[in-house]
Design a protein around this nucleic acid. Structure first.
Length: 115
DNA sequence: TTTTTGACGATTC
DNA sequence: AGAATCGCCAAAA
């Protein structure tokens, strides 16, 4: 195989992002960690930008940074879309930040290993 | 092909 | 405690 250039990276990120349960949130670093690349957290966010036209759709609104901040809200259709979607799931957001982030945090590694 | 960027994270000042 | 910097990896220009 030819490592380096392959959509598999994006696919993996999208896949895990789609695994995030309803009303739950995760962080870019957590996904990166689940992929085996701890320091590729930035790439995760990048892959998310490619998740727009992804099929099935990726719940990017459930992915926030390690601080629970909706850093990617600016990349949504509207600056309030992310927050509204989170609130629609019961995830309270204040000042672009998930309130019970730690409580609602969903670790892919935990679930992937549990299976 | 090289350079710049980018929805992060941890560390250092 | 807050701000700035480095590290990491991959894609777009």
């Amino acid at each position: 195989m030819k490592p380096g250039k392959n959509p598999d990276f994006f696919a993996a990120v999208h896949d895990i992002a789609r695994l995030v349960p309803y009303g739950r949130v995760t962080s870019y670093g957590a996904i990166a960690r689940a992929l085996g690349v701890r320091s590729a957290s930035r790439m995760v966010g990048w892959a998310m930008s490619a998740s727009h036209g992804a099929m099935p759709p990726v719940p990017a609104h459930r992915v926030v940074n390690s601080a629970g901040l909706l850093t990617g809200k600016d990349h949504f259709a509207t600056p309030t879309a992310m927050r509204e979607q989170l609130e629609a799931e019961g995830t309270l957001v204040v000042d672009n930040k998930v309130v019970d982030f730690q409580a609602r945090f969903w670790e892919p590694l935990n679930e992937l290993s549990l299976d």
